[in-house]
């Protein structure tokens, strides 16, 4: 494998030295472009108290092209599908090299605080979120408790 770009090394060091509150991202032993991530569910959201595992991969072109990010822990959210794929513009056409691993993960955490059922990826979840928000929030809370809590 080609030498790891210094930008990735710099980002990794900063993630270790000045971690973002509520987010932890650790590179894999065998592949420094692959990160194990934990995002904590934001306060006052149905995901509060949850520890959500994600995987983040920096493609060859990074930072010119966006990191690939996916939820590993099950989550009930209108913009995240059953495979854990995330619908977020900065991961697609709104990517910019001025964004970083930390800003991407902060955006994902913000998405948990502000679900957007009008731009759905998980259609059944989005539908319920629109017609019966309180039931959808109950489901999200139940999934968080069942799958993402660390006792």
């Amino acid at each position: 494998m080609a030498a790891l770009p210094r930008r990735i090394i710099k980002e990794t060091q900063r993630l270790m030295q000045e971690p973002v509150p509520g987010i932890s991202a650790v590179p894999d032993d065998s592949n420094a472009r692959y990160f194990h991530v934990i995002v904590t569910g934001p306060e006052d959201s149905p995901f509060e108290g949850g520890l959500f595992k994600l995987e983040l991969f920096l493609p060859e072109d990074y930072p010119m092209s966006a990191p690939k990010v996916r939820f590993i822990t099950k989550i009930y959210h209108p913009n995240i599908d059953r495979l854990g794929r995330i619908c977020l513009d900065i991961l697609k056409d709104k990517w910019s090299p001025a964004l970083q691993i930390r800003t991407v993960l902060l955006s994902i955490q913000a998405l948990l605080s502000a679900p957007n059922p009008d731009d759905p990826l998980a259609n059944d979840v989005a539908e319920l979120w629109k017609v019966n928000e309180s039931e959808a929030i109950r489901n999200a809370r139940e999934w968080t408790r069942r799958y993402a809590m660390d006792n």
Partner: peptide, 28 residues
């Protein structure tokens, strides 16, 4: 790039959480 002992510890914590969540059926 160097894997430090702090990093090893974090990797281990991640692994533990993964196993815990997997056992509860929480991993996709």
């Amino acid at each position: 790039f160097q894997v430090t002992s702090d990093l090893k510890k974090l990797q281990e914590d991640m692994r533990q959480l993964f196993i815990y969540q997997k056992n509860k059926g929480g991993i996709i």
